[in-house]
Computed example of a mutant assay.
Amino acid sequence: MSQRVGTHQGLHSEHGSLPGEHRDRSRNPVIKVHDIAWLEFEKPDLVRAEAFAHAFGFATVLRTEDQLHLRGTEPAAPCLMVRKGGRSRFAGYAFTAHDEVDVLSLADTMGAPTRTLPESIGGIAVDLLDPSGIPVHVIAGAHALAPLTPQTPHILNVGRDLLRTNATQRPLRIPARVQRLGHVVLQSTRYVEALNWYLDNLGMIVSDFLYFPGQRDQGPAMSFMRCDRGATPADHHTLAMALGPRNRYVHSAYQVADLDALAAGGEYLRERGYHRSWGIGRHIQGSQIFDYWRDPDGFLVEHFTDGDMFDDTLEPGWAAFTASGLAQWGPPVTKDFLGIAPGRESIDELRSMATAIRHRDNEFTLSRLAGLMKVATS
């Protein structure tokens, strides 16, 4: 590893770690995963799911009565796999290992068998459960689909740099072409246990920790984790995880070409009656320009562009977890994005709060509930 770079010198966070605070990486992880591969869902209506997917900017790889595989423009395996099911649910996700040796090593350490993936995907996988009970597949050797024609970024006149003369900018209101899956955000009742599991077994590095307002002494309540690629930069976060009253999917994010693609693609979605949850704005942790949408099954999905890329030298930042601190600029964060708008999601969350604090087999205590309640109003 290269020499570590601090965070309190005008870099990605105003504050770095204090002595004794949670580590940002494992000294000797079992393996170091390379990237996120795909997400898996079950949904009752694949026709409706595919219609939204095309409007959002995915391309279909496979469509049967029981399966739907979707991809971006970059050469990789499909980044979304949807199975027909009786109800809508998140069914797990996959990481890519550097090679099959890493998959075998992880399987041996975890005492789990490997399996051959379907011929249409290729390669091998080991199937695990993280401490939250979420299925995690680590794969290697999957076929990379041929690249599709990408959406071309616009040429911009920025400051006094004149790059465009006698030419207008008229971005078409068409779907923003998804390039790739960037990250997934999860909520866990066993946040610290799960965090350590990803650091120790998959070799992930924490880019930023967040703590509930007034509770830094109780430890972090959210972490943004990146893949450790050594000197090769990786996304600020491939996996983000927050402490909460139930184990659940929060959102996933997909990269697009630039702000014009994101904004014009958002207009395309809006004109077709889809629901924008929050956006357009620029995040603080990760810096990406974002635009959040709800799919017809209520899942939160994000278009993003211009995100931070870190190598293995940058140390973690620490900041308070506040609603106003989620964006550098943009409209105020919505109740829908926070999951507190009236509806099924907020009702389920309230019920799970009551259940979680009654049981002692998780990390969501009454004190942590008080901290979480401050997030939305701070």
Rank of each mutant, 00 (worst) to 15 (best):
M1C: 08
S2W: 07
S2T: 12
R4K: 13
G10M: 13
S13M: 04
R25V: 06
I31M: 06
K32H: 12
V33S: 08
W38G: 00
W38R: 06
F41T: 01
K43A: 09
D45I: 12
V47I: 08
A49G: 03
E50F: 04
A51D: 10
F52V: 02
F52H: 00
H54G: 07
V61H: 11
L62V: 15
L62C: 08
R63D: 05
H69S: 05
L70I: 00
G72F: 07
T73E: 07
G86Y: 08
R87A: 14
Y93F: 15
F95P: 00
D102C: 09
L104C: 08
L106N: 08
M110F: 05
A112R: 10
R115N: 00
T116W: 01
S120D: 11
I121A: 02
I121Q: 02
G122Y: 03
G123S: 09
P135N: 04
A142F: 05
L145P: 01
P147F: 06
Q151D: 15
Q151T: 10
Q151G: 12
I155H: 14
G159M: 06
D161C: 10
L162W: 09
L163K: 12
A167H: 10
R170H: 12
P171N: 08
R173K: 13
P175D: 07
Q179E: 15
V185G: 00
E193G: 05
A194F: 03
L202E: 05
I205A: 04
I205M: 13
Y211C: 05
P213L: 03
Q215H: 11
R216I: 02
P220H: 04
A221D: 06
A221C: 14
M222I: 05
M225S: 07
M225H: 10
D228R: 03
G230M: 07
A231W: 08
A231Q: 14
A234Y: 01
D235C: 05
H236K: 05
M241V: 15
L243N: 02
G244Y: 06
N247K: 01
R248P: 00
R248D: 14
Y249V: 09
V250Q: 11
A257R: 01
D260R: 09
A261E: 06
G265C: 13
Y268M: 02
R270A: 14
E271M: 12
E271Q: 12
Y274E: 04
Y274K: 05
Y274C: 07
H275Q: 14
H275N: 09
G279M: 04
R282T: 04
Q285G: 09
G286M: 08
G286E: 03
R294A: 12
D295M: 03
D297A: 05
D297W: 00
G307A: 11
D308R: 10
F310G: 00
D311M: 04
L314M: 13
A319T: 14
A320H: 02
L326R: 00
L338K: 08
P342W: 02
E345T: 07
S346V: 03
I347Q: 12
L350S: 13
L350G: 08
R358I: 09
H359P: 00
F364Q: 00
R368K: 13
L369D: 06
A370E: 10
G371W: 00
